[in-house]
Design a protein around this nucleic acid. Structure first.
Lengths: 252, 252
DNA sequence: AAGAGTATTCTGCTGTACGAAACAACTGTC
DNA sequence: GACAGTTGTTTCGTACAGCAGAATACTCTT
């Protein structure tokens, strides 16, 4: 029968491999039978793929249960430290969290989505690597504010401005106005736009060449973020840290 | 002709996919032609695999150059936080580094190798995810000291006790004696055993159930680590931090 | 002992990933 | 402006590798 359309240049086997890895990501410690059930693959297929991944060191097996190995960490970490600035940002995120006792994070953009690169904060950890809609986050808006018209056009075209919480900006016009304001004032707020009850504030981080590196932000329950706290403390502190990153990059 | 031996259950396509990813890991920002040159693959194969990986979100393309995307980060990070203890360890590594101004790290074992899970310290960053021989590190010896006889037997069988620096322990007998000593004193030293001029000290980290979680360590130039500094400060500090991890795990 | 659940091995078929080659879009060179 | 040398993209027939399914081996329960 052949492929259904002539456009598919992909490699089906690779897709299967990652289907297995993604299944393991969601819940590690699965048996071959269990993975077979959760994917649309055959037992023998799962078996062969797992053996291959194990041989390559990306999957480990401990008494019948399969786990993702640390091999991917080596690849991922190299990626995360692609830009020297990212490493500097990591430290600042940590310091920021320690000093304010709020949740802190550093966000970058990829494929029109926000990706958490570093994070400090207590609750159910590991948001690192997760993706969020740019238009519904303070950090996201900071990044969008740097897009030129073309890029922003493509963004709203490809991504819907979906409603995530009661104050999410869903209109194109409103978004453009908001971004202009963000550009002007140099920071962005997220007042229950991503999740009800959640407040965020973020600033842009630039390289010494004045290119946008990412966005540094704080977030937490809305009640904590009083105007006073925000304008007399947090925003200045964020600007300081962003500046420190730039300076560290410029001079050792 | 068929497969050369009946033992090969692997998936060749998957191996090709990861050959490409590993090539990109070593040096990102490569063109299709460049990847073709560095691997043993055909141009069209590289092309097809890259398109697939891009579609899956694990590779991104920026004006003709291909990079590893942050998609793998999401998988890897989940793995790294598999054990709740790892997250706690991360913070302690950071604190340790800040307090002592030395390089700090947390190491776990996988496939008889040491894997850096977290790290604090200045120079050429990102050792995270990298692998090291267990017998040549302070942290490695701490982990080996917990192996039972069977496991240690298999370890020396599978891994050579290779010489990495002037003081590396390469004899089985010597290693066993050393491990007994480590067990007894509760810490391990690395006196130019992995790299000439490099000194390390490490302690084990246990869960509330007294299972080994990993090893917490400090390292730096040999000259810095005087006996006084070691025995009056660092080792006690490491023990403290390891204890704090255990306690944090037991009670919020 | 039988049963239900595993992982592993085997085999022949089929679909697909592959390589080679041609094409298109750019580059710089003379 | 023609030409040679890049690059990425597409096509296409075929070998071969990944696949399904069954058969086997192995653990546990009961």
């Amino acid at each position: 029968m052949g492929p259904q359309n002539g456009e598919d240049v992909g490699v089906a086997t690779t897709r299967k491999t990652f289907a297995i890895l993604e299944t393991l990501r969601e819940s590690e410690g699965l048996s071959i039978a269990e993975i077979t059930r959760r994917t649309e693959l055959t037992k023998s297929t799962v078996y062969r793929h797992l053996k291959t991944l194990q041989e390559l060191g990306y999957v480990i097996e401990r008494d019948g249960e399969y786990y993702i190995g640390m091999g991917l960490l080596e690849i991922a970490e190299q990626t995360r430290n692609r830009e020297p600035g990212y490493t500097v940002a990591q430290r600042k995120v940590f310091d920021l969290g320690r000093e304010t006792d709020e949740r802190a994070m550093f966000l970058v953009e990829e494929n029109f989505e926000g990706v958490y690169l570093y994070r400090y904060g207590s609750p159910s950890n590991t948001m690192v690597g997760e993706r969020r809609p740019l238009h519904a986050l303070a950090s996201g808006k900071v990044i969008l504010a740097e897009f030129d018209d073309d890029r922003l056009e493509r963004f709203v075209e490809r991504k819907e401005l979906g409603q995530h919480a009661k104050n999410t900006i869903t209109g194109q016009g409103a978004l453009r106005e908001e971004l202009a304001e963000v550009r002007e004032q140099g920071y962005a707020l997220n007042d229950e736009e991503y999740m009800d009850g959640l407040f965020g504030v973020a600033v842009p981080v630039y390289t010494p060449e004045d290119e946008l590196l990412g966005s540094l932000g704080l977030f937490g329950p809305t009640s904590r973020f009083t105007d006073e706290y925000l304008y007399d403390d947090l925003i200045d502190r964020l600007w300081d840290k962003a500046g420190e990153i730039k300076v560290t990059l410029a001079y050792g």
